[in-house]
């Protein structure tokens, strides 16, 4: 009986703390090679910026924004690369890695034997993906300012927007991971991601597309993200950007809710 009433060192408070312990596990697991992989993740959008934004930009010159303003092609492409890298950073952590931990490493099985709940694992993994993604985004914004592609003030206000983009795609990725069956499906995710990358108003304005395609493009999450960040870095924020924010918040909420519920169903049979 004594053991039942003895005060324990174990604390129950806070889903927040338990989610943090999940993120903490990922920090502990960082191997030496991982830092190089991270540097690579940061480098990717920068390489695209130089190749497409500047290299191809020399062939294009200036480009008109939907609002009527004209900017250099590099200014046009840079925020899109930023949004796309926030997307791919969030997706790589929450699809491939998350799925592997869930299905093959059976890591979450061990965690669920502790007070940690499925939704807290989802939140913890998401928080971790965001820490990583935010470092990329901040570094990229610094480069944009250094290259005079935006002003420091706009870069500062674009930062929270990139975090929101990361969160929304992270939740979306996690939801997808709980819905797919096997590794083969990742080919599909990769292709979908690539299609988004090409057609989300990233390299040319959506107005360049035929009407039907244009509407399809405008409802995709990456298009909304590009629109939001481009609006901020080029200083052309309007009501549409408020809509972008609401869109991304809804995506985040739905993705998390579905992921939490599906994990509960899969892991707590």
């Amino acid at each position: 009986m004594l053991t039942l009433v003895l005060p324990k060192l174990v604390s129950f408070e806070g889903a927040g703390r338990r989610s943090a312990s999940v993120a903490e596990r990922n920090v502990t697991a960082l191997g030496s090679a991982y830092w190089l992989v991270m540097l690579g993740g940061f480098l990717e959008p920068v390489l695209y910026l130089f190749s497409i934004g500047i290299g191809v930009g020399q062939l294009i010159g200036d480009i008109g924004l939907p609002g009527g303003a004209t900017v250099s092609y590099a200014e046009f492409v840079a925020p899109a690369m930023l949004a796309a890298s926030a997307m791919s950073g969030a997706l790589s952590e929450t699809t491939f890695n998350f799925f592997g931990k869930m299905k093959y490493m059976r890591l979450y099985e061990g965690m669920l034997a502790t007070p940690v709940r499925p939704i807290e694992i989802a939140l913890g993994e998401l928080a971790w993906a965001m820490i990583r993604g935010s470092i990329y985004s901040a570094a990229f914004l610094v480069i944009m300012v250094a290259m005079d592609l935006t002003t420091p003030g706009r870069a500062l206000s674009a930062f929270p927007a990139t975090v929101l983009v990361g969160f929304a795609f992270g939740a979306l990725g996690m939801m997808t991971s709980t819905l797919i069956r096997s590794w083969q499906d990742f080919d599909l995710i990769g292709s979908a991601q690539f299609a988004l990358f090409l057609f989300s108003g990233t390299f040319v304005p959506a107005t360049a597309y035929p009407a039907a395609l244009r509407w399809l493009v405008e409802v995709t999450p990456l298009y909304r993200s590009v629109d939001l960040i481009r609006g901020i870095t080029t200083g052309t924020v309007g009501w549409v950007q408020a809509l972008d924010v609401v869109y991304l918040l809804v995506l985040l909420a739905v993705g998390l809710a579905v992921a939490g519920r599906r994990m509960e169903r899969m892991l707590c049979k």
């Binding site: 294009i60 090409l198 390299f203 040319v204």
Partner: peptide
């Protein structure tokens, strides 16, 4: 997709 998105999309802006 690359051909469509890049060749035709971006190509449309490479007027010269």
């Amino acid at each position: 997709l690359t051909m469509l998105g890049f060749g035709i999309g971006v190509g449309g802006y490479v007027t010269a």
